[in-house]
Design a protein around this nucleic acid. Structure first.
Lengths: 336, 336
DNA sequence: GGGAAGACTGTGAACGTTAACAACCAGTCT
DNA sequence: AGACTGGTTGTTAACGTTCACAGTCTTCCC
């Protein structure tokens, strides 16, 4: 009978007493050590069950120096991309038996990233995933002599840190080539913020496709990912002549562009074809349904955790994993 | 001079030796205990700085029995609402000096919630926020005799657990009354999944408004929050006569409805007025820009953490905090 | 039957911090 | 002067686990 002294939760010693063994044997049962007699094991398990014992992971972490917790540093987890990536990371980490501690940054400057990393290091995380879509974040990561295993997502060149990313250049190329193949003379571009690596990659892919086809490259219009910035770019494009195809760097801005075109009486895809990027769940139901480039955020999350765990457990080669994007044809594009 | 023996990070005893005091004095300095002589304090701080000492939070948690970590259980953090709520929670928690450990559920049945809570309890979190938008999740929470402070977000009646939620009934009423005030005879409704408390509250508000005005209540069309389900509901509505006003339970479904109407040649707001719910960033740029009801997810997150901390630190009264929704008039509604 | 290998179990000491208590010092009160 | 206060510091013992090592008990072989 377990003495009912206070409400203190049972510890290993209590289980040991109950089962008539030493605390170390209990520990062995818990850690599935092979050398425990079957009968002893069941006796211990019964005692555990009877007392409702739960192992104290904090004490365990103190002695093993492993918390089985991974840290995630991200930026604006309200956006679809980061949210989906973090979701994928969390699922993969939990499947591998790790907890996930998250830090969402507001501004993503060098010191912000540094603080977040310090904060997580203090907590004793075993590894860190940094969703570092901005150049500055990636740089901060590269500068930091981190003594904890880390992986960057969308990190460009992140120093010695392994990187998982979607092939943005390829995505930009796919979008642009599609428009060219429809017979458009050239393709305009509404870009993301210039310090975002993803934005830069998409611009590069767009430019490469145009140059490969020997077309002139118009000046890109800069947006900030928001629908409003897309709307403003759309108004400017609507006022121009000779615009027949636009590649917009994400679906939200594309929505703004579509809105502006609608207001100005520019028909899509009748007069102008539009391609977006991301394939958010809404895109299929825009007016018209948006042709876009899909990113598999779930895969990115899973791969980043896979890489991180490999680094924690074994040796860490400097890997770089690129996830291919997928082109999704819908109704916002048509032949010239 | 700190002896360079191995790469072991310095511990309190190292700092103590360096500063010529006992480790307990170092602890006192770190915890801002008042009774430490100024000169001693600076000596300790200098030693800390020199050695690059960082306190081991795991060891601290072991003895204090407080991890300064809060757990968050959520469902599909890819959706705008949950993502924004979790973001608000994380910001508020970190501002209060707490870490946030997150668990995203795929399916949200009783056992899933139970497992998540166990999982977090094992980790030794000081408190838990459950984003429990579904009836089943709220019930699971009510059933669980939790010995850890907890708060439910959107939890309806969650047993003894305090709740923070947006006034969904009021939101539904606002949307419906707006449409009635424009002269529409009655208002149709595309609802969310029936086991979601939010969906239920919006239905209740819609029904209450209609009944208060003495109008007949059409059969609601059931959706699942996705744009596609809204699209399907929209096609059915477009085929009906006498539909002049629709209240859709979220903005994503409203987008689907708009799409279906566009396809079927139903003009919005010319022939039919549409109101959504949530005010996602995209809504303003739908065609037409969507009249909707805004939920302040950030406030919900902040309040939930506030309540949780109050419960952790002091006594926990069974509170229930209701955040009011805000009506946002745009171009998708017009007088009959 | 003696010894060795191997399975199983127990004992003590970490891990790095905070809590509890005791000790010392100076100043103040009686 | 002696007792008492209160600020300041040090000593020892937790917290609950795992690790290293030392046992004990089989079993098997020569």
């Amino acid at each position: 009978m377990a003495s009912i002294q206070g409400r203190r939760p049972p510890v290993m010693a209590d289980v040991a007493r109950e089962a008539g063994v030493s605390h170390q044997t209990v520990s062995r049962v818990l850690n599935e050590h092979p050398n425990v007699r079957g009968e002893t094991r069941t006796r211990v398990l019964e005692a555990i069950d009877k007392l409702g014992y739960r192992r104290n992971l904090v004490a365990r972490a103190l002695v093993t120096r492993h918390s089985r917790t991974l840290g995630v540093v991200s930026f604006d987890t309200t956006l679809y991309g980061p949210a989906s990536t973090v979701y994928g990371i969390e699922q993969a980490a939990r499947a591998a038996g790790y907890f996930v501690s998250i830090v969402s940054l507001k501004s993503i400057d060098r010191s912000g990233v540094r603080d977040a990393l310090d904060y997580l290091a203090d907590q004793g995380v075993d590894g860190i995933v940094v969703v570092a879509p901005q150049r500055s974040a990636a740089q901060a990561l590269a500068d930091l002599p981190l003594d904890i295993p880390a992986v960057a997502v969308e990190g460009g060149e992140a120093g010695d840190v392994p990187v998982v990313c979607v092939d943005q250049v390829e995505g930009g190329r796919l979008a642009t080539e599609h428009l060219l193949s429809l017979g458009h003379e050239t393709v305009w571009h509404v870009s993301g913020p210039s310090d975002w690596l993803e934005a830069e990659g998409r611009v590069a892919g767009w430019r490469a496709a145009l140059e490969a086809a020997g077309r002139e490259t118009p000046e890109p219009l800069a947006g900030d990912w928001s629908p409003r910035s897309g709307y403003e770019a759309g108004r400017r494009l609507a006022a121009m002549r000779d615009v027949s195809a636009v590649f917009v760097a994400n679906d939200q801005m594309a929505l703004g562009v579509l809105r502006a075109f609608t207001e100005q009486g520019v028909r899509v895809p009748g007069q102008v074809s539009v391609v977006g990027f991301d394939d958010i769940p809404e895109s299929e139901f825009f007016s018209p349904p948006l042709t876009t480039v899909r990113q598999d955020f779930g895969a990115v999350g899973r791969h980043s955790i896979g890489m991180l765990l490999r680094q924690i457990e074994g040796g860490g080669e400097h890997e770089r994993l690129v996830v291919p994007p997928a082109f999704v044809r819908r109704a916002s594009t048509a032949p010239r």
